[in-house]
Amino acid sequence: MKHLITLKVNGDDYTVACDSSRTLNEVLREDLGLTGTKLGCGDGDCGACTVLIDGDSVSSCLTLAVSCEGKEITTVEGLAKSGEELHPIQEAFIEKGAIQCGFCTAGMEMSALNLLKKNPSPTEPEIRTAISGNLCRCTGYYKIIEAIHSAAETMKEKQ
């Protein structure tokens, strides 16, 4: 069954015709060309496909695109204000060496955003829990945890 749906992604409306069984991940990557969101496992176990829907982090690989109509979707491409001004989370990931191969990065950043929106001053165990659904093989998570700490500080200062 094909549906003509309008998705609000990073503030912009996109109208796509999509089959009801297509996942949000497929529509973002294949129809909208927003390939910053990755697909690492397709089972909701690795977190590489994490996006925010109405402010909550979800696995885009286990979300039906049709179910997202009328919701606010934020992907990694919507994090930075412009090409020149990055989001504090992105700045911190770069600054702290939290990025190696980069394949988990988008999902990690979205999980970090989910956390910091709800808990602006997280403890280390809270950060670990917040990213425990995001797997990374390169970093051992240390510098990612450090980056999220640092981003939290910057975001508080900015407010």
């Binding site: 930075a80 770069i94 990025i99 980069g102």
Partner: peptide, 11 residues
């Protein structure tokens, strides 16, 4: 800082 990390951070 690593090269390409801005690309990776922004998707």
């Amino acid at each position: 800082p690593r090269n390409h990390t801005k690309d990776k951070a922004t998707g």
